[in-house]
Computed example of a mutant assay.
Amino acid sequence: MATDRDSVLMAAVGVLCRQPTAALDEIARAAGISRATLHRLFPGRDALVHEVAGLALRRMSAALDAAYIEQGDPVEAVRRLADAVIPDATTAAFLTGESRLFEDSEVTAAWDRMDARVTALFLRGQQSGAFRVELPAAWLSEAFFDLLAGVGWAVQEGRLAARDSTHALVELFLGGALRTSSPS
Rank of each mutant, 00 (worst) to 15 (best):
A162L: 09
G72T: 01
A149V: 01
R40A: 11
A109N: 06
A66F: 09
A77I: 05
S165G: 10
Y68C: 12
T90D: 15
V15C: 00
D115G: 02
R35W: 06
L169D: 02
R79A: 11
A162H: 05
G14I: 00
L16F: 12
V52F: 06
D73M: 04
A53P: 00
L140A: 01
L41R: 07
A67E: 01
T119Q: 13
C17R: 06
A137G: 07
V133D: 15
L95E: 01
L24A: 12
C17V: 03
A67L: 10
A30M: 10
T108V: 14
R80D: 00
A89F: 09
R100I: 01
L121W: 02
A162M: 08
G97M: 04
E26R: 03
A130G: 07
F145T: 03
I27K: 03
L169M: 09
A31P: 00
L169S: 05
W153S: 03
C17N: 08
E103F: 05
R113M: 03
L48N: 12
W111F: 08
G54H: 04
A93S: 14
Q127C: 11
R40G: 08
D4W: 05
T180C: 10
A154L: 05
V118P: 07
D104F: 03
G158D: 04
R35F: 05
M1I: 03
Q71S: 14
S141K: 03
G175D: 07
L9I: 05
L140W: 01
V15A: 00
T166M: 07
A28I: 05
G14M: 00
C17W: 09
S61H: 09
R117W: 10
T90P: 07
